[in-house]
């Protein structure tokens, strides 16, 4: 492998790392809902794509809405869809049966997918790619403006989210509910409100992640929902179910490796290696990257 190949490899790792912030946001959403409810919400990535579509719908009257507005619209749609997912897929489903909510979220995933396919007739829609004309060159090496924007936005969302989780009452209540649901009710916390707010907040993150993938790829397609679901779940497992820092790091790693494997082995084989990475983690580090020793409770 000569120097040029090496630069190309580094280039694809950098591109993947930047795009990996999308996976990190999705991983946070999966892992937070798992942390609070001890349930997997399989419809999450589909809802995120749905929210990106929703932002197109909201802004269809405006030509060339500024980037901020596009992403805020996606976050808004994501929050609304998140609340709907909670009320349709979780609120009235018996908690005691772990499979029931899993099946209801599979149903929601298919439902959201079908709604998208039927309203758009399955045709991909162009999504505003932002700063795609900006390119930062460092010798042979270059950083794409649209990916850098996605990365910076993703990091900003994560910082805001971590502040929410560690500095506000909602954050502390969320963590209390995930550790001791009964005791937290007896500390005056309404579990219903915490659940709804968790779905709204993760839905907003998902909406932004959906818009970020749309902006990075330059279009939205219903075909995005399935691979994003799989990647989101892989990120969640590699990061450790319920671990927020794990989801962030795992999202970036999966993004970078995916892009590297694509460079080395081509797009058709790339997901094969990501799956192998997942199996390696399931066998050797089932608790994820930051697996910690169990506490005394």
């Amino acid at each position: 492998m000569d120097l040029l190949d090496l630069i190309d490899a580094a280039q694809s790792v950098a591109d993947g790392l930047l795009f990996g912030s999308t996976y990190a946001l999705l991983g946070i959403g999966f892992t937070l809902i798992f942390g609070v409810m001890h349930k997997i919400n399989l419809s999450y990535a589909a809802a995120s794509i749905g929210a990106a579509y929703g932002s197109l719908l909201l802004l269809s009257g405006f030509t060339a809405a500024p980037a901020v507005i596009v992403f805020m619209a996606a976050a808004l749609c994501g929050g609304v869809i998140g609340a709907l997912v909670y009320f349709i897929g979780f609120k009235f489903i018996p908690v005691a049966n772990p499979l029931a909510t899993l099946m209801s979220t599979v149903g929601l995933l298919l439902l959201i997918d079908e709604i998208i396919v039927h309203t758009t007739e399955g045709v991909p829609l162009a999504y505003p790619a932002l700063y795609s004309d900006v390119v930062v060159r460092l010798g042979q090496f270059m950083l794409r403006g649209d990916l850098m924007f996605v990365f910076v936005l993703g990091c900003a969302c994560m910082v805001l989210f971590l502040l929410l989780l560690y500095r506000t009452r909602l954050g502390i209540a969320t963590r209390a509910v995930s550790q001791q649901p009964i005791a937290s009710q007896l500390c005056g916390i309404s579990i219903l409100q915490v659940n709804v707010l968790t779905f709204v907040v993760t839905g907003m993150l998902g909406g932004i992640a959906g818009a970020m993938s749309g902006a990075a790829i330059g279009m939205l397609s219903p075909l995005l929902a399935q691979p994003l679901t799989v990647k989101g779940l892989i990120v969640t497992v590699i990061g450790g179910l319920g671990s927020i820092p794990g989801a962030i790091i795992a999202g970036l790693i999966v993004g970078a490796l995916e892009s590297l494997f694509q460079f080395l082995r081509g797009v058709t084989e790339r997901d094969l290696y990501i799956m192998m990475l997942l199996f390696a983690f399931l066998v050797f580090r089932p608790g994820g990257i930051f697996a910690k020793a169990p506490g005394r409770d």
């Binding site: 009452r169 502390i172 209540a173 963590r175 209390a176 550790q179 001791q180 009964i182 005791a183 937290s184 500390c187 005056g188 916390i189 506490g295 005394r296 409770d297």
Partner: peptide
């Protein structure tokens, strides 16, 4: 039934 993975201070903050 404490919140085992929260600090002492945070346990009181919750309530």
């Amino acid at each position: 039934r404490l919140f085992g993975q929260l600090s002492v201070w945070q346990n009181l903050w919750v309530a």
